[in-house]
Simulated scan of single mutants.
Amino acid sequence: MITVMVVDDIPSARELVSNYLREAGYQVISAVDGQEGLQKFEQLKPQVVITDLVMPGMSGLELCRAIKKSEQTVPVIACTSKNTELDRMWGLKQGINIYLTKPFKREELLKAVRSLTGEE
């Protein structure tokens, strides 16, 4: 079973994404911020990380950079309200594999996860 970690400081957003993933058959780990996300990433080794970019403490971009420096190669999906072209380009330059803007559709999220896990 593929494990996906969802990192978002907003409980309702974290739960929405987590529920979409569970309904699609994924095992889900959740974290409330980048610090907790990095700790769980190192301990539990998810195959995909989905993160908000704007969070207190460690941002989603900082989390992404830390993940990309690790020995484990893991794709990162950004789910964020930051939707300018500059935001998107900067995120991709920092190592984000797929950049989704909120609000997004369930199928858009699942398609992104499937494309990164080779399920498509």
Rank of each mutant, 00 (worst) to 15 (best):
R114C: 08
G60W: 09
A66D: 11
Q72Y: 08
V48C: 13
S12R: 13
A112I: 00
A66M: 05
V6I: 02
E62N: 12
N19M: 14
C79F: 04
R106E: 08
E71W: 06
L110D: 04
L100S: 07
L38P: 14
M89R: 15
V28D: 01
K40M: 12
K68Q: 12
E119Q: 14
P46T: 02
S81Y: 03
K69G: 08
C64F: 07
K45W: 03
G25A: 07
L92W: 04
E62R: 13
Q47S: 14
D87T: 04
E15G: 06
Q43G: 08
A112D: 01
P11T: 00
S115A: 12
L100M: 10
L110W: 02
S59I: 05
I67Q: 06
I50T: 09
T101I: 09
L110F: 03
K69R: 13
Q39Y: 15
S81G: 10
V32D: 15
L100I: 07
D33M: 10
R114Y: 03
I98T: 09
A112L: 05
V32N: 13
I98N: 06
E107C: 02
T3P: 05
P46L: 00
T80W: 10
E71V: 06
Y99G: 05
L100G: 00
Q47T: 01
Q43V: 13
I98D: 02
A31H: 10
G37K: 11
E120V: 11
E42Y: 10
R106L: 08
I29C: 03
V7D: 05
L44Y: 03
Y20P: 08
C79Q: 01
I29E: 10
V32M: 10
G60V: 08
K105F: 08
V32S: 14
I10D: 13
L86G: 06
Q47G: 06
Y26T: 01
L53P: 00
I98L: 09
C79W: 06
C64N: 00
D9H: 10
L16P: 07
S115E: 14
E107Y: 03
M58S: 04
K40H: 14
E36Y: 10
V28T: 00
K69F: 06
M55N: 05
D52A: 02
Y99H: 13
L109S: 07
N83Y: 02
I67H: 08
V4C: 07
D87R: 11
A112Q: 04
I77L: 09
R88K: 15
G57N: 07
T101S: 09
R106M: 10
A13D: 13
F104M: 15
A78C: 02
E108I: 03
K93E: 15
V4K: 01
Q94H: 12
L61R: 04
Q35T: 14
